[in-house]
């Protein structure tokens, strides 16, 4: 078990190294560098200014050289400064990470909390009106574009009813918990509805398959109610593949959700990564993308470990 864990960690480190080079190279291959972008925004910048700043920022150096310099610093814990915020990368990532954790954590949890019981009901009542209704709801939420759903929620709750704020993280000068929760409600609901459909379909499918297993008949013959069978036996069985899906979504906690963040002007990781890549902010984009990669790797590792705990047959040696 320890050997397996170590092996996975070494594999993860290699993946991170390869990813860091790929991201750096892809960003470097994008047309235009940070200084050219500065020059485009400042018509009075002269060619001498452009050459001077390119040398100062090091963007006149070959890509591989720049990458190795970055890697050397990153390995010593120095991720440099963000060009977009003029702050150290860690100071820029911190607030966005907190915001994304709150949004994605809340959204995914709510989506799962709604989807699991609905999936169970749909699995138990296969072909019935409740199954059809829930399927319709699932497909509706899968089909709805997130930006449109977000705008609908804003129009209803922020504009027409004026119950909730339309955007942002907090009211200026009033950043208490209740205020932050009010700002979080609509984007969380949007994320939750976005993942409700896939989770519902997935849980319905695995629970329906479990309900057809012979041991379910045995349990029922022993006198257990459907509810008891579902909660004590089927759910545990269904959790194994569900964990895999959740592990893949775990990375989303740290990489954010761009569309929802844009619609609600919510400063999370999705928007941060997008802005950093488009703004040629190498330091910020690399750190943010590597963090997202790392959490996805850890999520997968956690899922593997959870598999082993839930099903002894797949426990690694």
């Amino acid at each position: 078990m320890t050997r397996h864990l170590l092996l996975r960690l070494v594999q993860g480190a290699l993946v991170l190294l390869v990813m860091s080079f790929l991201v750096y190279a892809l960003m470097g291959l994008m047309p235009g560098d940070p200084v050219e972008m500065m020059a485009a925004a400042s018509p009075s910048m002269t060619p001498e200014d452009v050459a001077r700043l390119k040398a100062l920022y090091g963007v006149d150096q070959p890509l591989l050289h720049r990458y190795l310099v970055w890697l050397g610093r990153a390995l010593s814990g120095d991720f440099g400064y963000s060009r977009l915020t003029a702050l150290p990368v860690a100071a820029t990532l911190g607030p966005a990470l907190r915001n994304s954790l709150a949004l994605m954590g809340g959204g995914l949890s709510l989506g799962l909390l709604l989807a699991l019981p609905c999936g169970a009901v749909a699995a138990l009542r296969q072909g019935g009106w409740s199954d059809r209704l829930l399927n319709l709801l699932a497909f509706a939420t899968i089909s709805l574009p997130m930006f449109w759903l977000g705008l609908l929620l804003i129009m209803l709750f922020a504009v027409d009813l004026a119950w909730l704020p339309a955007s942002g993280v907090e009211t200026v000068g009033n950043g208490d918990l209740a205020d932050r929760l009010r700002h979080l409600l609509l984007p969380t609901l949007t994320v939750a509805l976005g993942c409700f459909g896939p989770y519902l379909r997935y849980s319905r499918s695995v629970l329906a398959a479990a309900l057809r297993e012979p041991w379910v008949r045995t349990a029922r013959a022993k006198g257990l109610s459907w509810r008891q069978v579902l909660l004590r036996h089927c759910l545990r069985h269904a959790l194994i593949p569900l964990f895999t899906v959740l592990a893949l979504d775990f990375g989303g906690l740290f990489s954010g959700v761009l569309v929802t963040e844009s619609v609600f002007a919510y400063p999370g990781m999705g928007k941060l990564i997008y802005d950093a890549v488009l703004g040629s902010d190498y330091n910020l984009a690399l750190a943010a993308l590597l963090l997202a990669t790392l959490t996805t790797l850890l999520g997968n590792l956690a899922a593997d470990l959870a598999h082993g705990l839930l099903d002894k047959r797949v426990r690694p040696a």
Binding site: L151, I154, M155, A158, V159, A162, P165, A166, S167, G168, S262, V263, F264, A265
Partner: peptide
């Protein structure tokens, strides 16, 4: 989002 913030008083 900017328009929504404007008409909702944000």
């Amino acid at each position: 989002a900017l328009e929504a913030a404007l008409i909702s008083g944000g």
